[in-house]
């Protein structure tokens, strides 16, 4: 990020850790550097300062111990669902045959059974995101990164996919870092929520969500859910006002 030749840091003083087997959500207003954060953790972007440790070892560049689920499905249009799902494994030097065998259970898990030979253009947005997810899960990452994966889905489909992610996480206990700007999405999915400040992004606070699992849509109607949701909403709203003041985008509420 450059403004009048001066570097403006996207992130600073951002400290948090993700425990193995936990589902952690990162919530912040738009432009707070959420995507930069994921890029740094994925190794796609080098931090100017600071480090990211994975099992105590600093990460250098991208690696097979992390996998990313992208906001747009990022599927290869010339490959079938099956071959898209095997793509990550193929990059990690598995033969097509081995990879196809290895993704089988993941295809079942994300509910793509019977669509193996379809092409991405034949699938709905939700189905495409399932392929995106299967591709990442199949590589058995230590850490799964998800960058607002439902941003392009409509309301109902988004809610449905949130339920699916919760189910899949329960079955896999895959350590996950999930970035979103939606309050209810974060509360519904997370064990722990990291709230980021407006740019430059810092850790504002860490919230623990102890709602019982399995969680279904019913959870969203409980008072406990609403208490957490309101707490989080207040935290994020503070940051939003701050951002508006800083950028001069109108008067604060």
């Amino acid at each position: 990020m450059r403004r009048t030749g001066e570097r403006v840091p996207a992130l600073c003083d951002l400290n948090f850790s993700v425990e193995t087997g936990k589902f952690v959500c990162v919530v912040g207003t738009s432009g707070c550097g959420k995507t930069t954060l994921l890029n740094v953790i994925a190794g796609l972007q080098r931090p100017t300062d600071g480090e990211v440790l994975l099992d105590g070892v600093p990460i250098r560049g991208s690696g097979r111990d992390r996998a990313m689920v992208f906001q747009s499905a990022a599927l290869l249009p010339w490959r079938t669902v099956l071959r898209n799902a095997t793509y990550g494994l193929e990059i990690q030097h598995y033969s097509v045959r081995d990879a196809s065998r290895m993704v089988r259970p993941w295809i079942d898990l994300v509910g793509l059974n019977g669509f193996e030979q379809s092409y991405p253009r034949e699938l709905s947005g939700g189905m495409q995101q399932r392929v995106n997810l299967a591709r990442a899960l199949a590589t058995h990452p230590k850490l799964l990164l998800m960058d607002e994966p439902f941003a392009s889905l409509d309301g109902q489909m988004r809610e449905y996919m949130q339920g699916e992610i919760e189910r899949i996480w329960r079955q896999t206990r895959q350590t996950t870092l999930f970035v979103t700007h939606l309050i209810d999405e974060a509360v519904f999915l997370a064990d722990e929520i990291i709230v980021m400040t407006a740019r430059p992004g810092r850790t504002k606070s860490v919230m623990t969500v102890d709602l019982p699992r399995p969680r279904t849509v019913e959870v969203k109607k409980t008072p406990a859910f609403h208490v957490l949701e309101d707490q989080l909403r207040d935290l994020v709203a503070q940051e939003f006002r701050e951002m508006m003041l800083f950028t001069g985008n109108g008067a604060p509420a």
């Binding site: 994925a42 560049g61 991208s62 990022a74 290869l76 793509y87 990059i91 990690q92």
Partner: peptide, 12 residues
């Protein structure tokens, strides 16, 4: 596609 490149690189 830029996103596909990012995807490819993210898998190393």
């Amino acid at each position: 596609d830029e996103t596909l490149l990012r995807c490819s690189h993210s898998f190393g």
